[in-house]
C-alpha cells in the first residue's frame, strides 16, 4: 500500500516536471503567436484576450513578398530530392560493401567511418561547388546534404544487408540475373525497413538543417524555412507575435511526422547509434 502510494506520487511528480520543463516553452510560443504586437511584447503566459493567430499567420506569410512560401517550397524540394538520392546512393553502396571483401573494402570502410566524425571543411567545399557552378544552387545543396548524410545511411544499409541471406543472390544469379537486376528487382524491395528508417530520420534532419543552407545556399531570395526564421529574427525583433508565429509554422511539419511515425523515428535512431 505505502509502496503504491509512493510510486504514484513519484509518477505525479514526473508528469508535473515534464509539464514544467517541456510543455511550458511550447505553450509559451503558442500562446504568444495568438497575441497582437503589444500583447506579445509583454511575454507573459496569460491566455490572449482575443485571438490574432490567423492575422499573424497572414502577416508572416506575406512578409517580404511571400518569402515564407518560397522557403517552404525550397525546403520541401530539398528534403524530397536529398532523400531520394540518398536512398539510392546508400543502398547501392551498402549492398556492395557488405557483399564484397577484398583489399579495397577496408579502405572504403575507413573513409566512410571517418565521415561520421570529421567536421566538413566549409570554405574548400564552397570553392569546389563554385568551380562546378553549383554554389548557391539547390542541386549543390542537395549534393552537400547527401554527402554528409551518406556515412550514417550506408552503415545502416550495410548492417541490414547482413541479414539478407546470400542464397537469394546465388539463386538469382543461377537463374541468369545480372548484378543490377539482382539489386533493383530482388534486393532493393527487401530493404524496405531501412528505407523507411532513413526516410523518417533524414527528413527531419534535412528539413531542420540550418548550418548547411546558411553556408551553401545564401542570399535572401532562395532560402529554406530555417533561414527565413533566422532572417526574420532581426526583422521581427520588436514583433514577437510574428516571430513566434513563424516558429510555430516551421515546427508543424516535424510535429506531424512525429505524431505519425514516433516509433519508427526512435527505432531508426537507436539502430544507427548502436551500430555506428
Amino acid at each position: 500500500m505505502i509502496r503504491s502510494i509512493r510510486r504514484f506520487s513519484v509518477e505525479v511528480a514526473a508528469v508535473l516536471a515534464s509539464v514544467l520543463i517541456f510543455w511550458i516553452p511550447l505553450y509559451f510560443v503558442f500562446v504568444n503567436a495568438m497575441k497582437d504586437k503589444r500583447g506579445a511584447s509583454l511575454q507573459s503566459m496569460a491566455w490572449p484576450a482575443s485571438n490574432h493567430l490567423w492575422s499573424n499567420i497572414r502577416e508572416v506569410i506575406q512578409a517580404r513578398n511571400h518569402m515564407l512560401i518560397h522557403a517552404f517550397v525550397n525546403s520541401a524540394m530539398l528534403t524530397l530530392f536529398s532523400i531520394a538520392l540518398l536512398l539510392l546512393v546508400c543502398a547501392m553502396a551498402g549492398f556492395v560493401m557488405q557483399r564484397r571483401s577484398d583489399r579495397v573494402t577496408p579502405w572504403i570502410s575507413f573513409f566512410v567511418l571517418a565521415g561520421l566524425i570529421i567536421p566538413p571543411a566549409i570554405v574548400p567545399t564552397i570553392w569546389v561547388l563554385k568551380n562546378l557552378h553549383l554554389f548557391k544552387t539547390m542541386l549543390g545543396l542537395i549534393m552537400v546534404e547527401v554527402a554528409l548524410a551518406f556515412p550514417f545511411g550506408v552503415l545502416l544499409y550495410r548492417g541490414f544487408m547482413g541479414a539478407i541471406p546470400r542464397e537469394i543472390d546465388e539463386a538469382s544469379v543461377v537463374d541468369g540475373c545480372g548484378g543490377f537486376r539482382l539489386f533493383f528487382q530482388i534486393i532493393f524491395p527487401l530493404l524496405k525497413p531501412v528505407n523507411a528508417t532513413i526516410i523518417v530520420t533524414s527528413s527531419v534532419a534535412i528539413f531542420n538543417d540550418f548550418t548547411n543552407p546558411l553556408y551553401f545556399f545564401p542570399g535572401s531570395k532562395n532560402a529554406t524555412v530555417q533561414l527565413t526564421l533566422y532572417n526574420f529574427m532581426s526583422q521581427f525583433v520588436s514583433q514577437y507575435n510574428l516571430l513566434y508565429t513563424n516558429i510555430l509554422l516551421i515546427t508543424l511539419p516535424p510535429l506531424v511526422l512525429f505524431i505519425f511515425f514516433n516509433k519508427k523515428i526512435v527505432a531508426g535512431i537507436t539502430a544507427g547509434a548502436v551500430k555506428g
Binding site: 573513409f111 566512410v112 566538413p120 567545399t125 569546389v128 561547388l129 562546378l132 547527401v146 554527402a147
Partner: peptide, 12 residues
C-alpha cells in the same frame, strides 16, 4: 558525390 563534396575539400 562523397569524394567531390566531402573527401576532396577535407584534403584541400
Amino acid at each position: 558525390i562523397y569524394l567531390i563534396i566531402f573527401i576532396l575539400p577535407t584534403f584541400m
